[in-house]
């Protein structure tokens, strides 16, 4: 099945419902229900589910463009994680699922998941432990956001294993899966940040001409475009390979390279915008704050550089064989 009709449907839906002011209102605690019902009702959550189970039967590579589009609009729902969990686990209950980057069982038996992206708009959180994973109902959790200014990520805590918890069989690398999805979000959001920064440079005039005509600005924007292109390619590599879940090395490269691009892309965007970019009422901050949060979620570049480096050293082969050609076939 081709992903194009889904991409067009999603783009229409996002343009209509998922506006910056809507994202802003959800971040402020406003209802997400309208958008949620639209997304849930259009069958996007089952795009990766095999056709034999009544799903869309698409591959991860097919849904890449759909997820990039969601990220360009900062979709405040964990649709990406929901798609992936539903594809892997046939008995996933209805509702949106966020993946927890990290889950611990505390001494008193409480379960804690820190830094869960989109926990505020999810119904379930997938918490992975050594051998197994469980879906925990968000309503049963105490939740708080570690970041001021809105629940981009949240910390959740369950006093004990809730009765409604649903086991997810299989030993899957959910951390790598989450990392790959964050890479796609970073790449998609950056795409939009580049577009608005170019538009601003063309619009804003100083010294009698558009900012875009100053060579210093042009050179910075060229660097930004390079980083955005590299991030996009890195994220696309995360969508490569067979199987429902990403290859660990591909996910590692995807998350490492996209995360590394975040500081330079965000800082050039702000530099070119000048003071207005810092203003709360200007939309740029909705994007750059998320870029920084997603860089940290599921391991920053520092985490993944260490993991890739250890793989590379353990493998005795030159870098092209040990890493590069395994990621890019």
């Amino acid at each position: 099945m081709s992903a194009d009709p889904f991409l067009h449907a999603m783009e229409r839906l996002l343009a209509h419902y998922c506006t910056p002011s809507f994202v802003r209102s959800v971040e402020g605690g406003g209802a997400v229900a309208v958008l949620r019902d639209e997304v849930a009702g259009s069958g996007f959550a089952d795009l990766l589910v095999p056709e034999s189970r009544g799903g869309g039967g698409l591959s991860r590579a097919d849904v890449g463009p759909v997820l990039f589009a969601c990220a360009r609009h900062l979709l405040p729902l964990p649709l990406d994680a929901t798609m992936m969990v539903r594809a892997v686990n046939a008995s996933t209950p209805e509702g949106f699922v966020a993946i927890a980057p990290h889950a611990t069982i505390l001494e008193d038996g409480a379960i804690e998941c820190r830094g869960v992206p989109d926990a505020a708009t999810a119904d379930w959180v997938l918490a992975a432990f050594e051998q197994e994973a469980v879906l925990l109902p968000v309503v049963a959790a105490e939740s708080r956001s570690p970041l001021a200014g809105g629940p981009i990520v949240a910390d959740l805590r369950w006093r004990s294993l809730p009765r409604a918890a649903v086991g997810v069989p299989g030993n899957h690398d959910w951390f790598a899966a989450g990392a790959m999805l964050m890479a796609a979000r970073i790449a998609g959001a950056m795409d939009h940040v580049l577009a608005v920064t170019l538009a601003h440079a063309a619009d804003r005039r100083q010294f009698g001409k558009p900012l875009a005509q100053f060579q210093a600005i042009q050179q910075q924007l060229a660097v930004m475009a390079e980083e955005v292109a590299a991030a996009r390619m890195a994220a696309s590599l995360g969508f490569g390979g067979e199987g429902m879940l990403p290859d660990a090395l591909q996910a590692a490269v995807a998350k490492a390279r996209t995360s590394e691009a975040v500081p330079s892309v965000a800082s050039i965007a702000h530099a070119v915008h000048g003071a207005i970019g810092i203003a709360a009422e200007f939309d740029l901050q909705l994007f750059t704050r998320r870029l920084h949060a997603w860089r940290l979620a599921f391991g920053s570049e520092g985490h993944w550089h260490g993991r890739i480096g250890r793989m590379l050293l353990a493998d005795g082969a030159p870098v092209l064989d040990a890493v590069v050609r395994r990621v890019v076939r």
């Binding site: 390619m233 550089h305 890739i308 480096g309 040990a322 990621v327």
Partner: peptide, 20 residues
């Protein structure tokens, strides 16, 4: 650790550049 991370960083850049 800094050498290991450096090796990983360069490898990740090489992979993406090769794809580009």
């Amino acid at each position: 650790e800094s050498s290991i991370a450096l090796a990983g960083r360069i490898a990740s850049h090489l992979a993406v550049l090769r794809a580009m």
